[in-house]
């Protein structure tokens, strides 16, 4: 059982610390496991600090997302193949991601949040960022894809020609 007023302190990779409600951290598999592993009294206030391998700026974004999604169902509903789709990102989440678009390092921010969601095991955030990146990639040229995914082309001209020849079966 998670008590709404129970709080946990998180220490970030760059030395900051932030105290948040267990209502938020319950969505993080990593933090919940860390608390369980501490085997402390759930009523201890505040709980001992949990170290997370996420920087302060990224953790603030993660907490902002968790605050909006604090009442989401747990465990996170795993979707079947048939239910999976990339065009059902909730409006608040779209706005949350759009907000990054005003930043110069939008791509870096998205990647940092994706990595944080993975490290902290926040399935809903990982799902949403995954759909966001998929939507950015779909319909783009090879060059644009390399730019979005920050990839260096390591093919020789001959290798590229061979793959293009294989791909030629596709008519559009």
């Amino acid at each position: 059982r998670i008590y709404p007023l129970m709080r946990v302190t998180l220490t970030t990779s760059d030395g900051a610390s932030v105290t948040v409600s267990r209502q938020l951290t319950k969505h993080s598999g990593f933090i919940e496991k860390a608390i369980t592993d501490m085997a402390v009294d759930d009523n201890a206030v505040p709980l001992s600090a949990v170290a997370v391998d996420v920087d302060d700026a990224t953790l603030k974004l993660v907490i902002e997302w968790l605050t909006e999604h604090r009442d989401d169902a747990l465990p996170y509903p795993e979707k079947t193949d048939e239910e999976r789709r990339a065009d059902d990102i909730p409006a608040w989440d779209q706005a949350f991601v759009q907000k990054w678009d005003t930043k110069e390092d939008q791509q870096q921010t998205l990647y940092a949040v994706i990595t944080a969601a993975d490290k902290l095991d926040i399935k809903g955030l990982l799902d949403m960022t995954c759909k966001t990146l998929a939507n950015k990639i779909n319909g783009k040229t090879v060059e644009e894809m390399r730019e979005i995914l920050q990839l260096e082309c390591d093919f020789t001209e001959e290798e590229l020609a061979e793959i293009r020849k294989e791909n030629a079966w596709c008519e559009n």
């Binding site: 990146l133 990639i137 783009k140 040229t141 894809m145 293009r164």
Partner: peptide, 18 residues
């Protein structure tokens, strides 16, 4: 997870990235 959300046509293009 990402690759489950990519269209087939875009998979063809992704093959050419690296």
């Amino acid at each position: 997870k990402l690759m489950r959300n990519i269209e087939i046509k875009d998979r063809l293009s992704l093959r050419l990235t690296c």
